[in-house]
Amino acid sequence: MNPLAMQDRIDPVARALADTTRRSLLLLVRDREVAAGDLAAEFPHMSRPAVSQHLKVLYDAGLVSTRSEGNRRMYHARKEGLSDVRDFVNDMWIDNLARLKDAAEGAERQASRAGSRTASPQSVRLRSKPLQTEDGRTRNPDQRRNQ
């Protein structure tokens, strides 16, 4: 998944949970469905449209589900809402570790081909270890190249 699409999934959740009223609303609908009017009644200092707006933000972030029952609008928490965050990060690592593998293996092949003739102090240091295997055998760069 491309990073922009991933960010599009994360930002609404982060924004939705950054507000105390919305966190209170989420708590109210955590275990049961509650009608919008009953939710609004829990916030007497706020206008009903303001509460509706908060519910819309939660809905857009995938944190609540909603349905109509007669002329009432019912809200319920979507427990899987936050799993998007985990999936997002997991997808990022899967994509990026594949790219790391390609890049590092390319660099390793290039280092083997370069041999000692162009070795900078840095690459000498870096190459000194891979040539020594755990069982103590020493391997020369040509062997590595042919593998």
Partner: peptide, 28 residues
């Protein structure tokens, strides 16, 4: 989250890819 990957490169090479800006820009 846990991920495992086997890479045909030395730990020293991989270390560069996690700690040097130009190397990081090659993959991340």
């Amino acid at each position: 989250i846990e991920q495992y990957v086997r890479i045909a490169a030395s730990a020293e090479t991989l270390w560069e890819f996690w700690t040097q800006p130009d190397r990081l820009a090659e993959w991340w």
